[in-house]
Design a protein around this nucleic acid. Structure first.
Lengths: 350, 350
DNA sequence: TTGAAAGCGATACCAG
DNA sequence: CTGGTATCGCTTTCAA
């Protein structure tokens, strides 16, 4: 078997050429058998398929991407992977992308803007067909790189402000406003915003801003901040709650930046003997899978992460196919549970 | 500026050649300026760097990978992205990989073996420098593809059985045994294993097997199964608990396949008026961030996901550098909390 | 220290 | 329906 010898001699993995030699056709025909089967005689097609199977042929997409127009890579840049924050977005995104044969290349900035620049550059070096990235507020260099790359860019999770190309996300300022409005409707009057608030977590800042404006609109005392520049953990919620109540005992409503932090808040309040939702109310953000299973169950805002991932996938495919940039705003939902009182009837009768 | 015109004329993104033309050197020199700077005259180096900056040059790694020996891609294949199950492994893995300039390409099988075959093939088509994959039990085809690819393969999360190349994980059967042993030591006698148990979640099956063997060794009644072939959710825990206790009222200890399911179990038990940890005990698996914050706090087994991710990254780099395959077993920890009684003194006085 | 030229493995266009 | 051939952008000898 001369052909067999020829195949092995090259050493590495089988290539289109190996198949071509073995079947006795040109490289070209083999390639077409893959991409446009109906342009190849059925008999030949069968032989080619057989050869591929026998040699365990796996196409080299580096070569394909270099040669062809598209690369089939979608770069996904997130700011965190902890606590499912974005895991379910990625989950939805990547499985929706699957049917278009697009592969996710993942990067995680951990809220570090320098990393973001490095990673975006790194992602672009793979000549992705599109890039999906968390947030709409990026270092100038990132915006510049992304813009000048000419690649479709979908900004996820947040919307508003200057969009590079397209966006799918929710209105965080509005969500923060809704958190505060709910607390106010429940009768809480002295509100605090508590949790992780990293320098570059613009979404957290927007929610806090939204809450502050709702409070101002209601003519209540200023929002008190109990935040720290680090990732959210339940223990952080505990610590911040104790600090907060030591210095601001009048606080009767805590708006949390995440459910994970809220878990710690509930515990700290319990330790201090404060009754929930009587003495004090707590609202979270994110609808963690445990939120409905802590005691008391946690009122929270549920972003539709799954929808965001799906929409992003749809938009990516649309943009690749030449459709226009778009911005999709995805709804969130306020889930009133036992960590806040039932909303009072409006005093104004409506 | 003739050179400028020449650069644009090609249309696409700047290439090494664009830089070369602009600086007036060969492509080669520019390439070396990047990979081996000290082989290029400092003055030239500066000019090249300047040109790259001005043109916003981003190397094309598809071309690099095709041409060079390595591709700098690490394929990561997980079975799930929900509920942080593997998110923190990926988190640790990818940030450790960063310093070696290795990029994560992600695939999610969702516990579907057909998908696993497809995705592994897809990953291999990028000619990765290494592949990290969840589990040690794969469809034959996957093992075959991976083996014949010649790429270093690190199997994560589980260990034991036939390893393709290297592995980093924990002993799940041992963990299941420890769960049961703890329950027995706490004085519970009628144990059940409850939760999600998908056909292809071999880790869950191993833990159940470990629990069953510990129970047999203790001479207690057989382990009762309350499992379903679907993903774990708190609501599943609730449903299964009700079914279980309706048909097996004698059960006094529930070993859960995950914390997320255990949350629902706690709720269902509360609804049925069973006292925890008096009437009945519950142990989880996974140490979810909320486990210590539900009521009662959940006794659980904590796998060291972070360590697994880190070790995997180390092993990947080692294998790429030609070191030998290895298997690392990572410890887990049993965290006794309030959903189980404190362990009794051994009856044998020891 | 630098450059010329030959691949890497596919795709795409143009003939036959 | 099938086959040549140029090409994608970079790395890698081998010379100069």
């Amino acid at each position: 078997m001369v052909s067999d010898v020829e195949e092995r001699e090259k050493g590495g993995a089988p290539t289109l050429a190996s198949i071509a030699v073995r079947v006795g056709v040109s490289v070209n025909t083999v390639s077409r058998a893959l991409r446009a089967p109906n342009t190849v005689r059925p008999e030949l097609r069968r032989q080619i398929a057989k050869a591929m199977d026998e040699l365990n042929y796996v196409p080299n997409r580096l070569a394909g991407g270099l040669s062809g127009t598209r690369s089939d890579i979608v770069g996904v840049v997130v700011t965190s992977l902890y606590y499912s924050e974005f895991a379910s977005i990625i989950d939805a995104l990547q499985s929706a992308l699957l049917k278009d044969n697009l592969q996710v290349m993942l990067a995680n900035t951990r809220y570090d803007p320098d990393q973001e620049v490095t990673l975006v550059r790194s992602i672009l070096s793979w000549r992705p067909a599109a890039v999906a990235i968390i947030g709409v507020d990026h270092p100038t260099k990132v915006t510049e790189l992304l813009t000048s790359s000419g690649v479709p860019v979908i900004e996820m999770w947040d919307v508003g402000g200057d969009i590079i190309d397209s966006a799918v996300g929710m209105d965080h300022e509005g969500a923060g406003k809704a958190q505060a409005d709910h607390m106010i409707a429940c009768g809480y009057r002295h509100l605090a915003f508590l949790g992780s608030m990293r320098e570059n977590d613009m979404r957290a800042k927007k929610r806090a801003r939204g809450a502050a404006s709702a409070i101002a609109a209601a003519g209540l005392p200023d929002l008190v901040y109990a935040v720290r520049q680090e990732g959210g953990r339940p223990a952080l919620g505990e610590e911040l709650t104790h600090e907060l109540l030591d210095s601001n005992p009048q606080i009767d409503g805590i708006i949390c930046n995440s459910d994970v932090v809220a878990f710690g808040v509930l515990k700290a309040l319990h330790e201090r003997g404060r009754k929930l939702p009587g003495d004090v109310g707590v609202i979270g953000f994110g609808d963690s899978e445990a939120a409905n299973y802590v005691t008391p169950s946690l009122t929270t805002v549920k972003p539709d992460r799954h929808r965001i991932g799906e929409f992003t996938a749809e938009l990516i495919v649309a943009r690749i196919n030449g459709e226009e940039p778009r911005t999709n705003v995805v709804d969130w939902e306020l889930l009133a549970r036992n960590s806040t009182r039932p909303p009072l009837k409006s005093l104004n009768g409506d």
